[in-house]
Simulated assay, not measured.
Amino acid sequence: MMGGVFLTAGLTLGATVISSTVPYWQVGLAMLLVGLGVGMTQQNLVLPCRTPWRCGTWAPPARR
């Protein structure tokens, strides 16, 4: 959940702050928040993709 918050905050800050006259630390802060948000969110998106599922079921295969 915090990943979505960081991503939203970073994109909002980036959309309102980034210009040629803004200090680099403010742009860097926006990029840091976007990076943290994407990293935290990506972890949750990759996990279901890597879990082996049988077609037509909602349960993972039984372990032997």
Score class of each variant (00 low, 15 high):
G3R: 01
G3V: 01
V5E: 00
F6K: 04
L7C: 05
T8W: 05
A9M: 14
A9G: 00
L11P: 00
T12S: 11
T12W: 09
T12E: 00
L13R: 12
L13A: 13
G14E: 03
G14K: 06
I18E: 11
I18F: 13
S19R: 14
S19F: 03
S20A: 15
S20H: 10
S20L: 10
T21R: 12
V22K: 03
P23C: 06
P23T: 09
Y24I: 07
W25R: 11
W25K: 08
W25A: 11
Q26T: 03
V27F: 00
G28T: 05
G28D: 10
G28H: 03
G28A: 13
L29P: 02
L29H: 08
L29R: 08
A30C: 10
M31Q: 08
L33V: 07
L33W: 12
V34M: 15
L36F: 15
L36Q: 09
L36A: 14
G37S: 10
G37L: 07
V38C: 12
V38F: 15
V38K: 08
G39R: 04
M40P: 00
T41Q: 07
Q43A: 14
Q43S: 13
N44D: 10
N44P: 00
V46M: 15
V46W: 09
V46E: 08
V46N: 06
V46K: 12
L47E: 11
L47Y: 07
P48R: 01
P48E: 00
R50P: 00
T51A: 14
T51Y: 02
P52D: 06
P52R: 06
P52Y: 06
R54L: 13
R54V: 13
C55V: 05
C55S: 08
C55W: 10
T57V: 06
W58V: 05
W58I: 04
A59L: 11
A59W: 08
A59H: 07
A59T: 12
P60Y: 01
P60W: 01
P60G: 03
P61M: 07
P61W: 03
P61F: 05
A62N: 00
R63S: 13
R64V: 09
R64M: 07
